[in-house]
């Protein structure tokens, strides 16, 4: 039996496969198609203080090897989330990581964190400071000082594991990664979507209502692997790698680049059972290569060419 367990801050995971925020709903949507009990952790759709109705339609568009979305963080708000969604999610016996975002920084981040801090069923908190679809001029995750200040403030409000989700839409991800680490983040999740745009040439209009959205899927995987590798060389806290993971093979790239855990995102839409399959796939890979545990692979990239 290969050891797939990892630690993210104070959170022990039985395996390192999670699902990315916004791509797994609140888990019940996958009933009969994926057993969430097999996953290392579930990350919720991002929650805000007040309910958000989200952005106008069209919100999604397929692109070469990917898709663009601009959902705009549609969610029922923290009260309804705690009343209706969380009780169902905790039934799977898997840690639930709650993703949060704020419409008023940093007060709402603090308010949300304080509420979640008191709830046992919340295993960890993910700070979504990198959503590209909130109509903000600049994301917190695009500025090292803003990132440090936000993380530092939230850190004071909770003893739970704090994960900071980073944006790839920056010139140097390591500066933001270091800022989050030094401000007290327990782990980093990277990457959020890459900003992109698609145009209908006949109509000369953008194909999604907000014009610009977030690109995800295999198209962004090489960007994500590169950023995990860059961050791994600079920071000491665990990295949760994501961006276009479609199967075991692509998940392994992230571990080798330095990720302690991975999240499956867009692939959940196409193969709803894929995250659970990757858990078995990783175990199989370790067995075949006579490795005792996943930790032996993390950051195991060899230098240069063979």
């Amino acid at each position: 039996m290969q050891d797939l367990s990892v630690r993210i801050g104070s959170l022990a995971l039985k395996n390192p496969v999670m699902v990315a925020s916004g791509t797994f709903g609140y888990a019940r949507e996958f009933k009969g198609l994926c057993d969430p009990g097999k996953l290392g952790a579930i990350v919720t759709k991002t929650i805000t203080v007040r309910p958000r109705q989200g952005n106008p339609v069209p919100r999604t568009c397929e692109t070469p090897s990917g898709m663009i979305n601009s959902i705009g963080l549609e969610n029922p708000g923290i009260d309804a989330f705690l009343d209706e969604k969380l009780p169902v999610m905790q039934k799977y016996g898997v840690p639930v990581i709650v993703s949060i975002a704020s419409e008023k920084d940093p007060e709402e981040f603090v308010a949300l964190t304080r509420r979640l801090d008191k709830i046992r069923a919340v295993a960890a908190i993910e700070l979504n400071i990198s959503c590209p679809n909130m109509k903000k001029k600049r994301l917190i995750a695009q500025d090292a000082r803003a990132t440090a200040s936000c993380v530092r403030t939230v850190r004071k409000a909770t003893g739970k594991t704090l994960i900071t989700k980073l944006s790839p839409n920056v010139t140097d991800i390591t500066r933001i990664a270091l800022a989050a680490q030094n401000a007290g983040s327990d782990a980093l999740a990277l990457i959020n979507t890459v900003q992109g745009m698609v145009i209908d040439v006949e109509a000369r209009r953008p194909k999604i209502a907000q014009a610009v959205g977030g690109l995800s899927g295999p198209a962004i995987r090489p960007i994500a692997v590169r950023m995990v590798w860059e961050a791994y060389k600079k920071v000491g806290i665990p990295l949760i790698g994501m961006g276009g993971i479609m199967d075991t093979q692509s998940a392994l790239e992230f571990f080798i680049a330095g990720a302690t855990a991975i999240s499956v995102g867009t692939a959940n839409f196409i193969e709803p059972g894929i995250a659970a399959e990757i858990v078995s796939g990783l175990e199989e890979h370790l067995r075949k290569n006579k490795l005792a545990g996943i930790k032996e692979i993390i950051g195991s990239l060899r230098a240069g060419l063979a």
Partner: peptide
Amino acid sequence: ACGIGACLG
């Protein structure tokens, strides 16, 4: 994108 109510697209 998903058809099962998860992505809200």
